[in-house]
Design a protein around this nucleic acid. Structure first.
Lengths: 105, 105
DNA sequence: AGTATTAATCGTCATTTTGCGATTAACGAT
DNA sequence: ATCGTTAATCGCAAAATGACGATTAATACT
């Protein structure tokens, strides 16, 4: 079915957006991080019951959370001994928008 | 703003879907692959003008295409000396649906 | 049979990622 | 001042990824 005859087409690449989308996707690209997002999407946040919910060591969960924070998907609010993690919905909105625009371009 | 008091909530994880979403995201999680998808979304397919469009070696582009194929995002149809690559829109539909359900769960 | 073209594969190297245990830092409570 | 609790960080090992040049495979055309 594919026509294969658009070799000549001009593409206007938005390199910044491409990197932005890739960064979001990369952050989500691990089952443990998908699960973390799933949990955090299910309402506010929790300390590190996250560690309990996922079958991984505390340091490993912390690292995954770091990745998510670095990508801007998750926010951390320190509260005394524990920290409160929460999703940043705007980031997921943005990701979805980037996905759409990638297809429609 | 986050309430941080849902430690007790029960989560029904769909591990298969989590891995599925992570796999899609991981495949997209590289700028070169985002660009490949962008190009392929812009109509049918092309041989390896792809190599020209992206500033990478032929073997590298081939590897990125392999990743995209393995993730089910791209289809390859061999035509004599050259191969015709095309997007699989169902896969992107599925990815978007998984993203939505991850947020709403 | 021999040539040209194109994608895939191989081998290699450097870098990054994943995971763990152990340690550290912060800070409220005793 | 000491004790708990919790998250972050430090090393470290194993594995995966990204990139390249070189080689191979497949197949139309001479």
């Amino acid at each position: 079915m594919p026509e294969c005859l658009q070799s000549f087409k001009q593409f206007h690449f938005n390199e910044a957006e491409e990197r932005e989308l890739a960064a979001y996707a990369k952050a989500i690209g691990h089952p443990a991080r998908v699960r973390l997002i799933r949990i955090l999407a299910g309402g506010g946040c929790l300390g590190s019951d996250l560690v309990g919910q996922i079958g991984l060591a505390q340091s490993t969960v912390s690292e995954h959370l770091r990745v998510l924070k670095e990508a801007g998907l998750v926010h951390a609010e320190v509260q005394h001994p524990r920290t409160c993690f929460s999703l940043k919905p705007e980031a997921l909105d943005r990701l979805q928008a980037l996905l759409v625009s990638m297809r429609a371009g």
